[in-house]
């Protein structure tokens, strides 16, 4: 998985590409570091843009939950946006929309 970051207003947009899976655990600290910068700059919304993500496995979904907790502890709202295809299927199977805000 690779990601690119864009800042707009009070939000930071993280656009994920490729596959988010069990081999990507070492990417979490990089995104948590981003949360620290956001907190420092007063940004309050983290948008995880999944529209270009091809695949997510159960470990990747676990990573989203970790990020959500890390965001909450910094009073940042995390939103997952645009999951499609196989990524949407995994999110629905795990009933993640009950605990994470997901926008189309």
């Amino acid at each position: 998985m690779d990601f690119k970051t864009t800042n707009t207003g009070d939000a930071t947009d993280v656009r994920l590409t490729g596959r988010l899976e069990f081999t990507d655990h070492d990417k979490i600290p990089d995104i948590v570091e981003l949360l620290d910068q956001m907190a420092g700059n007063g940004r309050r919304r983290l948008v995880i843009d999944m529209s270009a993500l091809e695949f997510i496995d159960s470990a990747g979904l676990g990573m989203l939950l970790i990020l959500q907790e890390e965001a909450e502890s910094r009073e940042i709202k995390m939103i997952v946006s645009g999951p499609a295809g196989d990524v949407r299927r995994s999110i629905e199977l795990a009933r993640l929309s009950e605990i994470i805000t997901i926008e189309p």
Binding site: L65, L93, A94
Partner: peptide
């Protein structure tokens, strides 16, 4: 539980 950080892999397999 849908908050758990692990254990979903088996749920996926058993569902699909």
């Amino acid at each position: 539980g849908n908050r758990a950080r692990s254990g979903r892999g088996f749920v996926f397999m058993r569902t699909l």
